[in-house]
Computed example of a mutant assay.
Amino acid sequence: MNKLKRGIAGLFIFLSACSQAAMARDISVVHSGNWPPYAGRDLPEQGLAIDLVTTALKRAGYSPQVRMASLTQILEGSKTGVYDVFATPWYTMDRDQYLDFSQPYLESSIRFIKRKDSPFEYSRFDDLEGLTIGVIENYAYDEDFNRSTAIKKVGAGTLIENLRKLIGKEIDLSLDDELVLRYTINTSLPYSVATLEILAKPLVVRGVNIGVSRKNPDHAKIVAGFNEAIADMKEDGTYDSIVQKHKAYIDRPASP
């Protein structure tokens, strides 16, 4: 009799799981595919941010369909409702007009990087005056930094280009998100690990959110479900497990 009861209970659990899977609603999730280690075509689970986002959306009852597009396409598609969820936007007042933002699920610390033989230390914005800093063109670091005319900013197309200029003493500093810096150095410039130093004080810390198209009639419900799922993931250890999984390759230098 006990075996029969256990069998029936197991069947109900199986049917319930199948029912929940069948009820999961498809939802399109888009990212640029070129912000490693947060998002990248060839990264495990397409990157740290995408892993967190898709896991949370699944917990909230959705079936995320992940695709990649250029930033211009993503923003235009979000305005028209072509895409439901932009996985990795920074908040701006302009974007808030057409994207419903979640609470931040990650923090992005924008930090300066220098050569270890440089005595420079960053403690306040005025410390940057007179320095030559390598930047990526059209990158939204920080409004005060971007507007400043007291800082000599030299544009480049990629972070690697700036890091090579830094190693070659063509610039005094560069800057980017801390995890992006660590990942890029370890994977693309491992010989420079002992040469470069990421400074402790960030220029700015920004939250990474999801942005749900306001054209989706359920945008508020999607945001609320995502926020709740992230909170639950932090409570039960799933969040930390995902972060540690990605940090394992972010912090592992490639063979020179």
Rank of each mutant, 00 (worst) to 15 (best):
V193Y: 04
K153L: 04
T92F: 02
R252W: 09
A9D: 13
Y105G: 00
K153C: 01
T88N: 06
Y122S: 03
E107I: 10
R6I: 12
S241D: 10
S16V: 13
Y239C: 02
D51H: 11
F145T: 01
G77I: 07
A194C: 08
V212L: 07
D144T: 14
I113T: 09
E76H: 12
G168Q: 11
K5M: 12
G237R: 07
V205C: 07
F125Y: 10
I27S: 03
E129K: 11
T80R: 07
R147S: 12
D42R: 11
E197I: 12
Y141V: 05
D117Q: 10
T54K: 08
E129M: 03
P217W: 00
R124G: 03
V208A: 06
P104N: 03
L48Q: 04
A87Q: 04
V135D: 00
G61T: 01
F14C: 11
L196F: 06
Y98F: 12
G207E: 02
S123D: 09
Y191N: 13
V135T: 09
Y62N: 04
R59A: 10
Y239A: 01
A22F: 13
T149C: 03
T88R: 06
E137M: 11
L159S: 06
S213W: 01
Y122E: 02
A24W: 06
I50P: 03
D236Q: 08
S102M: 03
R252Y: 12
V204A: 07
Q73S: 15
G211L: 01
T187N: 15
V82Q: 11
L175F: 00
I13H: 10
M1Q: 15
N2M: 13
V30N: 02
D144N: 15
S19G: 14
D218N: 11
M233F: 03
V154F: 03
E161Y: 09
L43F: 07
E143Y: 01
I160E: 15
D240L: 13
H31S: 15
F86P: 00
S16T: 14
T80C: 07
A140H: 08
W90V: 15
Y139L: 06
Y183A: 02
P104S: 04
V223S: 01
Q97S: 14
P256K: 13
P190C: 07
E197K: 14
L179Q: 09
P89H: 04
T54Q: 09
E178G: 05
E235A: 15
L4F: 14
L106Y: 09
N2D: 13
F120W: 07
K247D: 12
S123Q: 15
A49D: 03
T149W: 08
V66T: 13
V180T: 14
Q65M: 11
K114M: 02
E170V: 07
V135H: 01
V53S: 04
L4P: 05
F86L: 05
K165T: 06
A254R: 12
I50Y: 02
H219P: 06
I160S: 14
T238C: 01
R214W: 01
S78A: 14
P104M: 02
